[in-house]
Amino acid sequence: MLTKRIIPCLDVKDNRVVKGVEFLSLRDAGDPVELAAFYDEAGADEIVFLDITASFQKRKTVVELCRRTAEKVFIPFTIGGGISDIEDIKVILRAGADKVSINSAAVRDKSLIKKGAMTFGSQCIVVAIDAKFNGDFYEVYIDGGNTPTGMDAVSWAKEVESLGAGEILLTSMDRDGTKRGYDLELLSLITGSVNIPVIASGGAGCLEHLYEALTFGGADAVLAASIFHYGIYTIKEAKKYLSEKGVPVRLVEI
């Protein structure tokens, strides 16, 4: 049976993990590669790196991150953050990443999704959608949540699917960082509208939240950062919890 996925997300800047990570067992918990290898070992199903490096060196540092990760991590990994054109996608996939996550650039140039999917296959094109409820509908934001687009997240989700996106990484800006749980209404709206996998992001504070997103929300995968990084729960605990509640997950013996 196809399982639901648990995906730790690492925020990376200049090849260092940005948000503090508290694993005493790691030699260098600030090294994204070491942390990703730790999560591979711990039973994570995939890894997402959100690279927020802003310098002109960006492409070089991302390639370096991919290369080093591919040497030590043997589960799929995705790179997101600042991907702006087809050349970025090519360079990142060639350096060993399995998927790229495109956000603002996909809104600015929709053909990028289509070109990416045609050239490299839908399976490696993830479109990230940051959405916030504006009192009327869930509105798509870009530029790291700074720029409202006026676009409805539901119709944008349908459009990215038709353009060839392989997955949607859906972040609720209203819930991100709150630990109040994923936005199940937003999630249900999107998962009910598209036929590609949707990864829920933003708001996980406890294991029940993961369960809700994967069942009531209809998500295929859950992305989480702080609940794993701060050692509140291990991946193994999360999977055991979900499995006991009847959610199909890849159980790992450690």
Binding site: M1, L2, T3, D45, Q123, R250
Partner: peptide, 10 residues
């Protein structure tokens, strides 16, 4: 079902 079949399966 969703196609492609992507993910961990037994």
């Amino acid at each position: 079902i969703k196609v492609p079949h992507i993910g961990w399966n037994s």
